[in-house]
Design a protein around this nucleic acid. Structure first.
Lengths: 246, 246
DNA sequence: ACAAAAGTGTTGTACGTACACCCATGA
DNA sequence: TCATGGGTGTACGTACAACACTTTTGT
């Protein structure tokens, strides 16, 4: 960059938004569902519409810090996983020229909004209203990434507490993928992956007690390639498609 | 975004850069290698160092258009594939605050630089000098993405001409993955993928003639999820059955 | 005892890998 | 004819989907 002439910063503004996923159990069906918090806009563009939490990037603030701040301000909680999703910068997506660096994050199941949270609410990811700006599109993409990534990484653990049963974990997968998985096969796959540490604790209360497992922190939650080399050296696969000029 | 107070555009500037991959046959070993064009910086930050082609984002220019312009200005050619890589925005990566939206692109084999190209040169991707800014890091990440993506998409075709033999295609994979593949197994895998159309043309000239194939354009070069919904309607995300690497 | 979830066993299919082997051409 | 890359056949191992089956609890 900065190879050409030097007329920078037109009226271009940089924002940071975050798609925050968590899980909530539907009281009627008893099944887990992917939910996300949205904030109601209280000012000009798209006032009254629900939108992703976010804000302008501070000139002295790292991108991921800005995303975390977003999260703290809306949910009062720290994400268990945070990853850059995409930079959305289409000309027509907002009045003026706004480039939004969008992150996506996971919260452990059962996260509660702070009681003083006004204009913030949880929505079922598969049943969203029309959102502000291109945020429906952004959520669609984030969901696609989530569903993809759950297939080749262990991010599902980012939605669970420290101790969980294999059924808990399977339910997370089923909620994300929106289809049932075979309990027997699921057990074997996850047991052979070497990422779970069995404990001697069991969840009792109904039927046969289920052994509780703990996540093996020696293995990263998700491979990220050479990004943030201070966290992940190098190994497996990520994902992210787009644009074909062929 | 834009949910908070409204003090936008600090001194933040937005740049667009592109990592452009192509292939070149090493004259001595006869093997294909991944190469990319770099430009020598002629002004202040990191003057004299090699850097990724790029420039400031124009306020009226779409992100991918800016990336394509970059490509045209440096190589004079149109990319066969273009995809956003990542938004790099660390505070210390450049004097002032610069957020770089980085794309990566593919050029068909044998692309030539325009004869008037000064301060532009091709480099072997696995043998780069110290580049300006964090560009070594960026290229590492782009290479990682390329190697990953070649495993689950057909982007390798973006590096080949219209007609190619199976050996040509295999050589592309071998160059990207930096390891030899079994010709017999490679043939079957790619034949069973349904993405190649055999022609009645053969490449003659040495030994047994090799049948030439054409890329089946009914199949996308790479899965792209819900991005650019004008191209990908609402149906066709990726593959990904059960698989749990948790 | 019964229902239901926890957990084990077994089998068939699909697919990748390794490698032996035949085919067609230029020199 | 021989060398070489093009192309086919086959056998083995792993991974996974399907599903029958056993175990352990609460009621």
């Amino acid at each position: 960059m900065m190879t050409r002439t030097d007329p920078p910063s037109d009226g271009i503004r940089v924002a940071v938004s975050t798609v925050i996923f968590s899980l909530r159990r539907d009281p009627t069906t008893g099944r887990l569902a992917v939910v996300l918090p949205l904030v109601r806009r209280t000012r000009d563009p798209h006032e009254g519409r629900w939108a992703l939490p976010g804000g302008w990037l501070d000139g002295a603030e790292e991108l991921d810090v800005a995303a975390s701040r977003t999260l703290a301000e809306t949910t009062g909680l720290a994400p268990s996983y945070l990853e850059q999703l995409y930079a959305f910068g289409d000309i027509g997506r907002s009045p003026g020229r706004v480039v939004s660096i969008v992150y996506w994050a996971l919260l452990r199941e059962g996260a509660q909004l702070p009681i003083d949270a006004h204009n913030v609410a949880w929505f079922d990811a598969s049943d969203l209203p029309t959102l502000a700006f291109d945020h429906n599109h952004i959520v669609d993409y984030a969901l696609w990434r989530l569903r993809n990534k759950v297939g080749y990484s262990r991010i599902a653990h980012g939605l669970l507490p420290d101790l969980f049963s294999l059924s808990d974990l399977r339910e997370v997968y089923e909620a994300i993928l929106e289809r049932d998985l075979d309990p027997a096969n699921f057990r074997r796959q996850v047991e052979n992956s070497g990422t779970l540490i069995p404990t001697e604790q069991f969840r009792t209360g109904s039927h046969r007690p289920a052994r509780l497992y703990r996540y093996n922190h020696d293995v990263e939650l998700a491979e990220r390639g050479p990004l943030r080399s201070d966290i992940t050296p190098a190994t497996a696969p990520p994902v992210l498609p787009e644009k074909v000029t062929t």
